[in-house]
Structure formats: structure tokens, C-alpha cells
Amino acid sequence: MTVHSDFMKNNTIILLIISVVVLAAVVYTLTGTESPEDYIERIEAERERQFKFIRFNFESPLTDEQKASFTKLNFYPIDPTYKVKARMVPIEDRKVREVPLTDGTKEKYIEHSWAEFELNGKSEKLLLLQAMNEPDKRNFFLAFADATSAEETYGGGRYINARQDGKNSITIDFNLAYNPYCAYNPDYGCPLPPKENLLDIAIPVGEKNYDK
């Protein structure tokens, strides 16, 4: 009877462990939440994709001479606290804004919404712009500058590809902030961050300045 009891007890423990694992998998699936390990792996994979594009793609902003000596992109360490869920506040009277580019020209965008969020205990907001010809209305262009700009990061700001993921919400992951083409090659014209997106705080994640 003791052997049978121990066997049943062990089976119960195994079933409980399996149930917890299955439940965790279901929660991740339903909520879209990643484990910390999966998150870091995804960011690292995106960084590797960026490097390969800049190094090998024919559409890369690097010249052939630059590619010959290019060995890596520079990034801050990954910090999940800089992935924030923002509340989208639509701009009622949406206007077309002519955004200045680094080459002196201008490009038209729609002033769409404000993304309001908290970061390190402080309330922040950024202006979400949308390209005039954007086919997917859930995609937004987010250009920003912060206290690291012109120091550790590119002086002309950095970009994030932001995508609406709820009725009134959007995820902004600063770990995915990347440099515009003009950070690598001044022959390119790149949109400058709007004045509303000049943050007075440091965002020490994402891509650092290109080390020529």
C-alpha cells in the first residue's frame, strides 16, 4: 500500500507540474506576453538582422568602402523596463505636417495621436506621425531625440517602428530604437524629430551612434 501510495503521490506531482507548464503556455499565448528569455532573444535576433542588412544589403546606406571595414553595430544593453505600453490619445483636428529633413527638404506626415506613458516614474508623451501613403493604418512613424543625442547616440535622433496593438494602446519599445540612414551616410535626407518629441531625459537603450 505504501508503494502504491507513493506512486500515486508522484503521479499527482508530475500532473501538477505539467498543468502549471501548460497553463503558463496558454497564458503566454492568450496575453502575448513573452518570457524574459524570449524577449532578449527576440531583440538580439532583430539586432543581428539590422547588422546583416547594413553590412550586406544593396539598399544599405553604407558605401562599398564603408562596408569593407564595417564589423558591428553599437547597442546599449537590453533593458525591458524601456518597453512601455502607451495610451493613444487621438488628435481631434488632425493636420498635415511638413517635417524637415537633414538635407533641407521636407516630407509630409499626418499628425495622428499622442502616445502617453510612464517611464521611470515620470509621465511622458510622444507625437505619433503617420506617412501620407501608409497602407496599414496601425503603423506609425516615431522619431525622437533625448539626453543621449549628440553624445552616445546620433545627434539627429533615432526612430522606432511603432504599431498599434489595441483599440487605444500602442507598445513603444525603446530597445528597438535605431539610427536613420543619415547617421551612416550624410548623402541621405532623414526626417528630424518633431519638437514635441525632444525628450529631456536619457533613453540609454537601443542603437548607439555609428562608429565610423
Rank of each mutant, 00 (worst) to 15 (best):
N139W: 08
I18N: 09
A150Y: 06
K52Q: 13
R47F: 07
T81W: 03
F144K: 05
V27Q: 08
S149Y: 01
N57H: 15
K108S: 15
I43G: 02
E134P: 06
F174W: 10
L23Y: 13
R42E: 12
E98N: 10
A45K: 15
D211W: 09
K208R: 13
V3P: 08
T33E: 08
T105G: 11
I110K: 09
E152F: 01
A150W: 02
D187C: 02
G121H: 14
G32Y: 13
P204S: 12
V3I: 15
Q66W: 02
N185D: 03
Y28E: 08
T153E: 01
R97L: 00
E44C: 03
K125S: 13
V99T: 09
R49D: 12
Y82F: 15
Y184V: 06
G206T: 00
D165N: 14
L128G: 04
L101S: 14
K52Y: 04
K212F: 04
S123T: 12
K137N: 12
Q66E: 06
T102F: 10
Y181L: 09
D165G: 07
Q50N: 12
D38T: 14
L176G: 08
M1T: 09
E151V: 11
V20E: 01
N133L: 13
R163Q: 14
K85F: 07
F7R: 14
A24P: 04
L30S: 11
F70A: 12
E46R: 11
N10E: 12
P80H: 04
A86F: 10
V3Q: 13
I201M: 05
I43A: 02
E65I: 12
T171G: 01
C182F: 00
F75P: 10
R158G: 04
V21H: 03
E44I: 08
I40F: 06
T71V: 11
T171M: 05
R42P: 05
Y109R: 14
A25L: 14
F141S: 15
A131F: 08
D200T: 09
